[in-house]
Design a protein around this nucleic acid. Structure first.
Length: 483
DNA sequence: ATGTGC
């Protein structure tokens, strides 16, 4: 069962090469330190890196980030770019939660100003933002027609309906709207699942977390991002909810047929895909863009209710709380982007699944305010430890199609974590560490146990040392709401 | 991740 046929070559302290052999078109490259590499080999994720390397039209390398772990077909923490002419697009390379992502808000508040008020903040957030499996909003049920407008316009829809400001849009990847979304390619079932879920958190590892800047590694960049020591931040991690799940599920069926139709040899059925320039490939992309836009709108709506929750809990005006968006980045998505391949500029379809775009300073897609420092990247850890703010680099652009990691990465399955948490009160343990948590389900809290994750500091150190991101600040949690 | 199996 655990027989390994592949050969791994150490490139340097933070990179490992899986040599091309058999049906692989390219080498695999994994970013990890020595001890992580041992952990990584315990699951099937490296075999998945190899499987991805066998897909038609893949260019460069099949990449694994240090938070890599087993996923549906493609590994989570994987990056794969395909040639527009002979390459493929695959729902498994994006993931079930299309445009799952992280946004970071900063505030005009500092730690001492809210100490003693954390209970009311966390309660207010928990009341205002529905959380948990199947969570929906009682105060906002859209018509099918209106959902289609969300799918076309993303966060722009939210802003034009009074949820946030135009300035927010400048600080979202793609300005909160992926081009090419066609709602007619999203099934009625998917749209129905989306009617009442806009502005809800969901379950699993999704959260809204209030924290503070605990350490700054680069003063100048932190200042540009508007972060200072002890400043209060809010991190939002969620995606496209049931609508995105349904889009993925619908298109996996389409892609299984398409893989046969186009004679694509699949090492694993879960890698089902279609040529980028086929009807199935174009349809998937247009539907995926819809789900991505729904997720952008979702995080934008949640931002609105975060602002409102702070105002209510602290009895402050928006001018006093000064909650603004630092940035919003996707970590489950496929994008058409220009990259240098063998010295030539080429348009590629880049799949990032559990991987974050990390574009360098001066890139056209890096927001104007951050041109000098690079695109912000947020790496949430687990509930008990910390998170990181990074920026993208030239090296990421040249080595990883402008990509980096997305989180700590699991070391325990959900089942394992539940067993380890048996007989313990995770909420109480966190409270003793000074972290208040409100969760819809006790089971989710157990699955999200701190020890179920790698130490995010080690993950971030790998991408920092490998040069594919630059550390800017560390954030520590104060209170968190979970699904 | 997911109206947590059709």
């Amino acid at each position: 069962m655990n027989e390994r046929n592949y050969k791994i070559q150490k490139i340097d302290d933070y990179r490992w090469r899986i040599l091309r052999e058999g049906k692989m078109h390219v080498d695999g490259i994994v970013y990890a330190d020595e001890s992580m590499m041992k952990e990584i080999q315990k699951d099937e994720s490296l075999q998945q890196v190899i499987n991805v390397a066998c897909l038609p039209g893949i260019v460069g390398h099949s990449l694994g980030m240090p938070d890599i772990h087993w996923g549906y077909g493609f590994p989570i923490g994987g990056v794969a770019a395909f040639d527009m002419e002979d390459g493929v697009v695959s729902p498994g390379g994006v993931g079930y939660d299309i445009n799952c992502g992280v946004r970071l808000l900063k505030t005009g508040l500092c730690r001492v100003e809210i100490s003693g008020k954390l209970e009311s903040i966390v309660d207010s957030l928990f009341v205002n933002i529905p959380s948990g499996v199947g969570s929906h909003r009682k105060d906002l049920k859209l018509s099918q027609h209106e959902v289609k407008n969300v799918l076309k316009n993303g966060a722009q829809w939210a802003v034009s309906h009074g949820y946030g400001s135009k300035e927010d849009l400048e600080h979202i990847e793609e300005k909160g709207c992926i081009f090419g979304a066609d709602p007619e390619l999203v099934s009625t079932r998917a749209i129905e699942r989306g009617l009442a879920q806009l502005g809800t958190l969901g379950s699993g590892n999704h959260f809204v977390e209030v924290g503070y800047v605990s350490e700054i590694f680069d003063e100048k960049i932190a200042r540009t991002l508007g972060l200072e020591k002890d400043g209060i931040t809010i991190m939002i991690h969620t995606g496209s909810r049931g609508l995105g799940y349904q889009v993925c599920d619908d298109f996996i069926k389409v892609m299984i047929r398409a893989s046969g139709k186009y004679n694509i040899e699949l090492p694993d059925r879960q890698l089902c895909c279609a040529p980028i320039n086929s009807p199935e490939g174009r349809d998937y992309f247009a539907a995926m863009a819809c789900a991505a836009n729904y997720a952008f709108a979702n995080r934008q709506m949640i931002t609105h209710w975060v602002r409102e929750s702070f105002e209510r809990a602290l009895h402050v005006s928006p001018k006093e709380s000064r909650i603004s968006l630092v940035y919003d980045a996707c970590h489950n998505i496929a994008k058409f982007e220009d990259h240098l391949v063998n010295g030539q500029k080429k348009r590629l379809c880049v799949h990032r699944k559990g991987a974050t775009r990390a574009f360098p300073p001066n890139h056209p897609d890096t927001p104007a305010a951050y041109k000098a420092v690079g695109q912000p990247v947020f790496i949430p850890g687990d509930m008990g430890r910390c998170s990181y703010v990074l920026v993208g680099t030239e090296k990421a652009y040249s080595d990883t199609f402008g990509s980096t990691c997305h989180g700590a990465g699991r070391v325990m399955s959900r089942n394992q974590a539940t067993k380890v948490a048996k007989g313990r009160s995770i909420a109480q343990e966190l409270k003793e560490k000074g972290i208040l948590v409100r969760a819809d389900s006790r089971a989710t809290l157990e699955e999200e146990l701190s020890d179920a994750y790698k130490d995010v500091t080690k993950v971030v150190d790998v991408v920092q040392h490998a040069g594919i991101s630059k550390k800017v600040a560390q954030l520590k949690p104060l209170c968190v709401i979970k699904g």
